[in-house]
Computed example of a mutant assay.
Amino acid sequence: MDGPASGPTAAASHADIAELSYEQARDELVQVVTQLEQGAATLEQSLALWERGEALAKRCEEWLLGARARLDAARAAADDAS
C-alpha cells in the first residue's frame, strides 16, 4: 500500500527540485534535515520531508557531477593545448 507521500503526487511535488540551483537545493536540504532532527513532525510529515530530502540530495549530486565533468573537460582541453 502506498503512503501519502508516494506515487504521482510526490513526483509532482518534487518536480520543482529539477529547477533549483545547487545552492538552493543545498540550503533547502539543510532546512529539511533540521526539521527532521527536531522531531516535531508527524510520521506522515517526516516521511514527506525524508523523501524531499532524498530528492534534494540527488539534485545536489547531479550538480556536483556536472561540475566535475566540466572541470575534467577543461583539464583535458588544457592538456591537449600543451
Score class of each variant (00 low, 15 high):
L64K: 00
D2I: 00
A81N: 15
A18P: 07
A12Y: 02
G7A: 09
D27F: 12
E62K: 11
A5I: 01
A11E: 05
V32H: 02
A12I: 13
A5Y: 07
L36C: 06
Q38L: 12
V33E: 09
L65Y: 10
E54S: 13
E37W: 08
A55G: 07
C60K: 06
A77Q: 09
V30N: 05
S82M: 10
A57M: 08
E54Y: 08
L36M: 07
L29C: 02
Q24E: 09
D80T: 05
A40T: 04
E51P: 04
M1E: 13
W50D: 14
P4T: 07
A55D: 03
H14R: 11
E37H: 11
G53C: 03
T42S: 15
A55N: 06
G7S: 09
A11F: 04
A18I: 04
A78D: 09
Y22R: 12
A77N: 03
D16W: 13
A74N: 13
R52G: 05
E37M: 14
S21Q: 06
Q24H: 02
P8F: 01
A69E: 13
E61P: 10
L65F: 08
G53V: 05
E62N: 08
L47G: 15
V33T: 05
S21I: 00
E37A: 09
A15C: 03
G66V: 07
I17T: 10
L56V: 01
S6L: 11
E19T: 10
D79Y: 03
S21K: 13
A10R: 11
L36P: 01
A78N: 08
W63S: 02
G39Y: 07
C60Q: 06
Y22V: 09
E37V: 06
E28P: 00
A67H: 01
A11I: 09
E37I: 10
I17C: 06
R75N: 07
Q45W: 00
R52P: 01
A78G: 03
